[in-house]
Amino acid sequence: MGRDVIAAAEVRRIAALARLALTEDEIPRLARELSAILDYVARLDALELPEAAPGPPSGLPVTRADEPAPSLDGDAVLAGAPQAARGHFVVPRVIAP
């Protein structure tokens, strides 16, 4: 896995993937902290590992019968949204007028 050191440009790339606006002070701090954490996790390089990734724990997932059942009330769910109208979530305009 190597000892990747995270530079400011890499922090910006990851923040864009994570949809996270960062301030100018946060960027160098995160570069330092993430580099230190990656340096620590690099000890996994020493470990011999099986080829295949494991599946889910035995017995999981548990599925129920595919039958309709009462669900949450739509208005009650929308009441928790920052903005809703006429039974829908409202988002900023996606397509420019």
Partner: peptide
């Protein structure tokens, strides 16, 4: 809007973990 919401809404530890996990 999403970037601004998440940037303002999450604290430093949550941001750190989201960043590490995304990486």
């Amino acid at each position: 809007m999403m970037e601004a919401t998440r940037g303002a809404g999450f604290g430093p530890e949550v941001k750190r973990r989201i960043m590490l996990g995304t990486f």
